[in-house]
Simulated scan of single mutants.
Amino acid sequence: MPSNIRSRPVRRLLRVATLFAAIAHGAPAAAQVTLDVIGPHEYELPVGFQPFNVLVQYATFQRADRVWDSGGDRRATPKSEVLVGLTKYVRFWSPESHRNIGLAYEVIVPEVGIRNTRANTSASGIGDPLTGPAIWYKPSPNSTVGFQSFVQVPVGDSDIGGGDGWKNLSSVFWDVQLGKWSYTADAGFVFFGESNAADATPANVFHTNHRVGYALNDVVEPFVGLDYEQQGSWTNKATGQKVARSHETTAGLGVMFKYYGNQSLTLRYSRGLDGDSHGATNSLNLKYAYAW
């Protein structure tokens, strides 16, 4: 394939902020809405391309000092700081027999650090890794529709919430490009296996994530984001305690930088707007991607 043709899908796939990222490892980190790490052009994916690889490093700093109470008010809580890294390797290919679709398989390893500044205690370690495929097609040259499903394997460090049951994250995603405007989004569920700590199966989580960007030029693209998740109530059989239904809506502002044709850097700030019985998001997010 001519290099100028191959570079086009490479640049597009570099814009993938993630096909999955969940950083709910332990109570403080649970403030983050599922898949809120996605960025503009997240799902602007091509078809009919030669196989290649992408390595992505994410970093999220969350000030976990506020929660939404059951009445929807923001309340102070013992101050904690959470730093989460996500190291992701993705293999992209388009089958020779079906060049009108695209496929990806990825492995994600979370690195989590939690510090309680009031008690001067901390914990860190490797979270539960994630792995799974994605598939998509293009209804038109400027749109993409797909499906992704990932398994979170409970082998992470228990000090930061790992090892507490299997999880599956499945969602549909879509993307539309309109000149300098871009819209990318997803909607899906997190399904839980039985919790080792609670001797119960937590209620499923519904989430949806939306990004709208406007390209100032070929390098700089500011964007806005809106994220939402909701989890039903369930009972901790080990303690008999009922865990209340919870939700949070967040909004964010960010900017994406694209350079060298095969690299990108995305920065974003996100804050909770509304919620109940949920950690309040207040985070800085960074993503660096490199394709080869």
Rank of each mutant, 00 (worst) to 15 (best):
A119H: 13
N53I: 13
W181S: 10
W174T: 14
D199N: 14
Y269Q: 09
T18S: 14
R115I: 07
Y58K: 13
R15Y: 05
F257A: 04
Q62A: 01
F206K: 00
H278Q: 13
R211N: 01
T87F: 15
V10Y: 05
L14E: 10
G240E: 06
R268D: 01
G193V: 03
R11D: 11
A59K: 09
T250C: 10
G279L: 04
A244S: 10
T235G: 05
A21G: 12
Y228S: 03
P141D: 09
F92E: 05
H207A: 12
D175T: 01
A244R: 11
T87V: 14
A291L: 11
G48W: 06
V255D: 04
T77K: 09
F147T: 03
V151K: 06
G240D: 08
P46T: 05
W93N: 09
R12F: 03
I114Q: 04
A215G: 02
L45I: 10
R271D: 08
S140C: 08
P141A: 07
A215E: 08
A185F: 11
S283L: 04
A200E: 08
R211L: 06
L103E: 08
D164S: 04
V212F: 11
R8W: 12
V54I: 12
N282K: 07
P139W: 01
V145F: 07
N196R: 15
R91E: 09
F223T: 00
T250G: 01
S80E: 06
P40A: 04
F49Q: 08
L226V: 10
V90A: 14
Y43L: 02
G26I: 01
N236V: 05
T117P: 00
Y290V: 13
F257T: 04
E81G: 10
R6F: 12
S122G: 06
N204R: 03
A280K: 08
N100F: 08
V172I: 15
F49L: 03
V54M: 11
K287P: 00
S97N: 11
I5K: 15
S246M: 06
T131D: 06
V205P: 03
V219F: 02
E81Q: 10
A17W: 02
Q32H: 11
